[in-house]
Design a protein around this nucleic acid. Structure first.
Length: 423
RNA sequence: GCUGGAAUCGUCUAGUGGCAAUGACAAGAGACUGUAAAUCUCUCGGCUUCGGCCUUCGUAGGUUCGAGUCCUACUUCCAGCA
């Protein structure tokens, strides 16, 4: 079971430490979105220097390239990407269900690669195998995303997600016990030794064979070395959109399951998120960590999330917006490409301690963006990622010293003084 | 000097009798939340009571119901020949 220590609790809100095999995560924490095993435009060194504690990669993307077996061969995600810290993987559900033609059956989802049209199938079991191969510390259950925001579709998706959750848990624990299917020599019983995940075939070989875990529709198997010691953990995903009755059902269902923590499917509206999180997190067991999936473009999401008991967050927006020239400041987001910054020689955000703000002016950033220099995206990404990571770090400090309410009030009043959060 | 060719919205460009005029870039602005995103959208002659009105395709004339498009002259540029 994933170890999670709560240092301070105030209602639903808490500060704690998640202990993963690759290190501790002090929570609340903003997890960097490293979809394809990289945080776009940033090196892992830069990520460490800006204070990032953990990254989240995506099973769907890594399945398409470079393939999950290759990541396993490289020694796992943290090693492959030279991150050497705590890692998460999202199951791939969110991406697969956003593809144009997906065929969903009770068994799983059939889809085509958005890159070259290759056919893939992903099931709860294959998602678990893929995530084990990728080797992230924390995995998400393979969930079924609703095709619309209607109550009916949400409920159907949730019900399937719950049925799939049991299969995820079963496969996850099977993999955790080191049990895989037929080996290349025809032996069909393989056993693990001590949770070290060292697989020994009946014939004594330490090289075990396992089904391809990249979801490709192929028969046969390949031989891989499974001797790397590892512990990996599974989060159930709580769905339900903005419907409180569904959220309640989902939370009640997931709360009873043998999982290490919970992913909470985000809702991309500021309205109602606090109520939704209050319902969900009042039901989920307090002692297990919760990850709010995909939220963090608007700082208010992070404050509301932490206030209602979410421990980790991930979001692509900070780096994506950085690449597009939309940069966070304490007074709200600015578009650095606007003509008014052409000769603004002040720091992007004078109060900011990041590499970008300590060294470069708005005019310089404006120039880099207007001339489409790669460095524009690098510096902007450093800043935006730092802004969000450090904001959540400050939320943590404020929880620990009992000043969260004041910090929240002060931050949000200033940030949203001239505009309202995106709908 | 002669003979061809060319001049279009900041730039390059489409257009060969119905045109406020094509496309790209530049410029101006907006969007982005478990990343098919270094992406996408809008504006881009002036005015407008949103129906239009006015001024535009080197300059000046002409032909025509109608000219960026045809004719004449001029100006500038390019190429070839002297």
């Amino acid at each position: 079971m994933l170890k999670f220590d709560i240092e301070k609790q105030d209602g639903l809100m808490r500060a704690g430490i998640i202990h993963t095999p690759h290190g501790d995560i002090k929570t609340p924490c903003f997890v960097g979105a490293a979809t394809r095993a990289t945080v776009k435009a940033l090196t892992m060194k830069e990520m460490r220097e800006l204070g990032s504690q953990a990254i989240l990669a995506n099973t769907y993307h890594l399945l398409l390239a470079p393939g999950t077996d290759l990541i396993k061969e490289a020694g796992g995600l943290a090693e492959f990407a030279s991150w050497h810290g705590p890692t998460f993987t999202d199951s791939g559900g969110f991406q697969i269900f956003s593809l144009p033609d997906v065929k969903i059956t009770e068994e799983g989802a059939k889809f085509k690669s958005h890159i070259n049209g290759d056919k893939f199938e992903m099931t709860p079991e294959s998602s678990m195998r893929a995530q084990w191969a990728i080797g992230a510390d924390i995995h998400m259950a393979f969930d079924h995303l609703a095709k619309s925001d209607s109550h009916e579709d949400m409920e159907e998706a949730m019900a399937r997600t719950h049925r799939w959750l049991d299969r995820c848990i079963e496969e996850h624990s099977r993999l955790g016990a080191g049990i895989v299917s037929t080996c290349s020599k025809g032996h069909d019983k393989l056993s693990a030794k001590n949770r070290q995940f060292e697989i020994v075939c009946d014939n004594g070989s330490k090289l075990a064979s396992e089904p391809r875990n990249d979801g490709r529709e192929r028969s046969g198997s390949r031989t891989v070395c499974l001797s790397a010691p590892t512990e990996q953990y599974l989060y159930a995903v709580v769905q339900g959109g903005t419907f409180l009755d569904l959220r309640q059902k989902a939370a009640e269902h997931c709360a009873t399951k043998a999982v290490d923590g919970f992913g909470i499917g985000g809702v991309f509206t500021a309205d109602g998120m606090d109520e939704m999180l209050r319902v969900v997190n009042s039901i989920l067991p307090n002692e297990k960590p919760r990850h709010l999936l995909g939220m963090g473009q608007e700082p208010i999401d992070l404050f509301v999330g932490a206030e209602h008991g979410c421990d980790t967050f991930d979001c692509v927006a900070p780096t994506r917006m950085a690449r597009n020239g939309s940069l966070y400041t304490l007074d709200g987001r600015i578009n650095i490409k606007n003509a008014k910054f052409r000769n603004d020689f002040t720091a992007l955000m004078p109060e900011c301690e990041c590499e970008c703000c300590k060294n470069y002016s708005r005019a310089y950033l404006h120039h880099l963006f207007k001339t489409d220099e790669i460095t524009a995206k690098v510096l902007a990404s450093i800043h935006n990622e730092y802004f969000v990571v450090s904001t959540v770090d400050k939320i943590r400090s404020s929880i620990l010293d009992g000043t969260f309410k004041e910090y929240k009030q002060e931050f949000l009043t200033r940030y949203y003084k001239n505009h309202t959060p995106a709908k």
